[in-house]
Each structure stands twice: as structure tokens, then as C-alpha cells.
Amino acid sequence: DGCIQFTRHAGDVLLNFNRLRSRNLLTDVTVQVDGQIFHTHKAILVACSGFFYSVFMKPENASLSAISLDPKVDPKGFSLLLDFMYTSILNLNDTVALTTLNTAIYLQMEHVADTCHRFIKSRHQV
């Protein structure tokens, strides 16, 4: 007896979620960040961000279909982190590293924030 592990399953599932997002299919919450609108899936936001977990785990918020973030949040940083949630790829560079760090802290994505912090430190050492 044995079992078969499909090693690329997690990536295939996430790619399908990203295809749904890009076609705005089955999206169930719009996130407004400083005037910009992002169509997303609650389950992905909650799975990736402590902030969204704390928001949507409250019964009174579970059916929310729109949420506006604090005006201090940078849409560019949020967009990069949303892409990360749906692809596992974080597009860091000197221009966006600090805003991505700050946004990751706000969204309670500690592991990404640590990575941004290490990236910034490494660039200062160069």
C-alpha cells in the first residue's frame, strides 16, 4: 500500500485562484486602498494576513463585501503583497522595499516583513 503525493498541487491550486482573481470570478470582497480598488477572495486574504484574519473571523464582519484600509496604507505596497499572496512571488526592489515592509507590518504578515527588513539591511551593507 502507499499513497501518491502530487508535489505541485499547492502551486496549481494557487495559480487557479490567481486566474479567478484576474478574471474577477468568485471574488467576494473588494479592498479599497487610498482610492484604489482590489477585487479579492476573502479566504486567500485570511489565509495570508493576520490583519484580515482578525477582521473576518469576527462574525459581524464575515459577510462584508467591501473593506477600506487605513489611508496611511500605500496601494503600491498592498498590490505587491496581494500578488505575493496569489503567487508566492515577492517583487522587491530598492524603490518599494520600505513601503512593502510597512504594509506587511500593517497586514500582520510577519514572515514577509522579516524578509523585507533583511533585504533593506543587505542593500545598506552593499
Binding site: 500500500d1 502507499g2 499513497c3 505541485r8 486566474r19
Partner: peptide, 21 residues
Amino acid sequence: YEGVNTIKERGRSIHEIPRQD
């Protein structure tokens, strides 16, 4: 699945949702 003989399947596991219809 500790102790169970696991065969790793490297191919695609599910259908791929197209970029557009």
C-alpha cells in the same frame, strides 16, 4: 502519512483555469 510508502507525482494535479473564456 508517516510510515506509508509515498510515491511523488510531479505532474499537474488539477485542471488549469484559462486566462479568459
